[in-house]
């Protein structure tokens, strides 16, 4: 588990790409710069695709972890690269 304190959590288990990123992006749009979002996915390719797209669009990926047999968390700071 990550040491970051998230401001918001998004559980999108069952979603595949590109909707994993689409939903993550929509969640980030509702947050303020510097706030932290925890995204939970169970689609393994998403732990590579989603962070890459987030970084491209100015957010800072703080941590990616496997949290149990099926699920992963992606911790991201809104506009952390801007």
């Amino acid at each position: 588990m990550s040491e970051y304190k998230e401001n918001s959590e998004l559980n999108i288990k069952g979603e595949i790409c590109p909707f994993t990123f689409v939903k993550s992006k929509l969640a980030l749009e509702k947050m303020k710069k510097g706030e932290i979002l925890r995204v939970i996915v169970d689609y393994e390719p998403a732990i590579r695709n989603v962070p890459r797209s987030m970084e491209e669009q100015g957010h800072k990926v703080l941590s990616i972890n496997k949290i149990n047999d099926t699920d992963y968390e992606i911790i991201v700071e809104k506009d952390g690269k801007k």
Partner: peptide, 21 residues
């Protein structure tokens, strides 16, 4: 957005110049 709208407009939402906003 409804689930249907998220899917329908996904390729717009992904674009930095469009997004959900």
């Amino acid at each position: 957005f409804s689930e249907e709208q998220i899917k329908r407009y996904a390729r717009h939402i992904i674009l930095p110049e469009v997004g959900g906003e």
